[in-house]
Simulated scan of single mutants.
Amino acid sequence: MKPIYEDPEHFDAAVTKTAESFISRFGKEAGNEAWKAARHPSMTEAEKAYCEAVAVKVVSMLRTPAE
């Protein structure tokens, strides 16, 4: 089994699912909360990269009007 980081399709799906969870939980503050989570000092580089990808996705989703 490949790590999620080696499969872009699974990585993107996981990032989107996590971003949706942040938005559902925090609403308009989801971007701030996601970036706060991405800056947690004890994370590995892989965890940090994933959390930063989630934070970027959250901000993007919040800026895009719902259809």
Rank of each mutant, 00 (worst) to 15 (best):
M1K: 10
M1L: 12
M1G: 12
K2T: 12
K2D: 14
P3T: 01
I4R: 07
Y5M: 08
Y5C: 08
Y5T: 10
E6H: 07
D7R: 03
P8C: 02
E9W: 02
E9P: 04
E9N: 12
D12K: 11
D12R: 08
D12T: 05
A13E: 09
A13L: 09
A14P: 03
A14H: 06
V15I: 14
V15R: 10
T16K: 06
T16E: 15
T16Y: 08
K17I: 14
A19G: 15
E20Q: 12
E20P: 01
E20Y: 02
S21G: 15
F22A: 06
F22M: 13
F22H: 14
F22R: 09
I23D: 12
S24H: 06
S24K: 10
S24N: 12
R25E: 12
R25Q: 11
F26A: 07
F26W: 06
F26T: 03
G27V: 08
G27T: 11
K28H: 13
K28P: 09
K28A: 15
E29K: 11
A30L: 07
A30W: 03
A30V: 05
A30F: 02
G31T: 07
G31K: 07
N32E: 14
E33W: 01
A34P: 01
A34L: 09
W35F: 15
W35A: 10
K36I: 05
A37N: 15
A37Y: 10
A38R: 06
H40P: 00
H40S: 10
H40K: 07
H40V: 06
H40A: 03
P41L: 05
S42N: 13
S42W: 09
M43F: 04
M43T: 05
T44W: 00
T44P: 00
T44Q: 00
E45C: 00
A46Q: 08
A46H: 01
E47K: 02
E47A: 08
E47H: 01
E47Y: 02
K48G: 06
A49M: 00
Y50S: 08
C51I: 00
A53N: 07
A53F: 01
A53W: 04
V54G: 04
A55F: 03
A55T: 04
A55M: 02
A55G: 04
A55H: 02
V58M: 00
V59Q: 07
V59K: 01
S60L: 04
S60H: 06
M61L: 14
M61C: 03
M61K: 08
M61I: 07
L62A: 01
R63G: 15
T64C: 10
T64I: 05
P65K: 05
E67N: 08
E67P: 10
